[in-house]
Design a protein around this nucleic acid. Sequence first.
DNA 1: GTCTATAGAAAGATAGAC
DNA 2: GTCTATCTTTCTATAGAC
Lengths: 213, 213
Amino acid sequence: MSATTGTHLSEQSIARLIEESGDPTTATVARLMGAAADAFAEKGFHATTTRDIASRAGLSPAGVYVHFTSKEDLLFELSRRGHQTARDELVAAARAAQTPTDALRSLVGGFSAWHAEHHQLGRIVQYEFRNLSPEHRDTVLELRREIDKVVRGVLQDGVDSGEFEVEDIPGTALALLSLAVDVARWYSPEIRRTPEEIGRTNGDLAVRLVTRR
Amino acid sequence: MSATTGTHLSEQSIARLIEESGDPTTATVARLMGAAADAFAEKGFHATTTRDIASRAGLSPAGVYVHFTSKEDLLFELSRRGHQTARDELVAAARAAQTPTDALRSLVGGFSAWHAEHHQLGRIVQYEFRNLSPEHRDTVLELRREIDKVVRGVLQDGVDSGEFEVEDIPGTALALLSLAVDVARWYSPEIRRTPEEIGRTNGDLAVRLVTRR
DNA sequence: GTCTATAGAAAGATAGAC
DNA sequence: GTCTATCTTTCTATAGAC
């Protein structure tokens, strides 16, 4: 696990994110979650073996089960915390803004940048949802509803204030989320554009999509 | 496989699509591809077993291997044909239009509607790409490049004609594709909006995103 | 071209020593 | 809390009869 290998950089950054994310955890749990996030994002939940996760985290195959009851449990913890940080980011962006236009720009821009910066977690949040158990799905669904609500709220605020001109509010809200969410599908750390640039482009496009003219 | 079960409706519609899609195939192959498309879209490639595909198609587990050399081969055939019909749809929309604005509207609108109408195939095209073998990935990548090229071409046409005002052409092209592609993620046959309505909304939004003011 | 039967490999999870 | 060893199930794919 030396710093010179290079292959574990993103795993380490996720482990750091997990450790700093409120919810306190031990270093081993953070390392396991980082390893799992890397593997799930790279190959998908079902293509990832518990042996793979364990070895990425520097543990034996049995070592995983001391900290998580199942592979699905590991996915759930990642999905839950991913949804939480994504929602927190959105709510903070909406609160900090002075006008609906500012709010929408930093909402869609920030959410897009988040999906680039944390594209492993982003993929898990957006594309591994169906692999959660029914109970775990329900828990996460609650967080997803909050996210939708924030976007629709800002859209409605802008319509009320006269800044926005929107024909179909639910359809437009979905399109705005698509703009940000789909970043997790195409983003790769190798591309030229930085997460900040992506956020700026998509934030501007979002405003353009709804501004009255 | 009676018409009254209801559970095989989408499988049958994919089988019909496959049979009518140029590339001639036998009824059994079409049925197998329909079953696989259904299963892959519902549970993902790795979560789908060959037994599941065979039984959905009314065959024994061994029956699959008479027509396809492997599970991945079945995925490849679906991915290839899916990409082809998607590209054909896009090219036709671009050709039929009189102005860049019309072209963009029917391009993004049609592509969005396609991802709703054929959401099983759409999910396979967009989300199961990484499960192809390296050789098969290359084949499909060629079709993906054509799709990107059509979108950028229309965007450039509009900028040249003065109809469009675009700050960042590659970034905007990606955002326009996101609008359409992400439909495959959230669409479900149970929702209220029809594929046509989704296409109309997204086509209008696409035009709004780039029109000079 | 379809079947039954099964080979062979790999997976998730546990037992029990340390 | 971590290990080695392994149980049990399940999977892809093939063999060989019809």
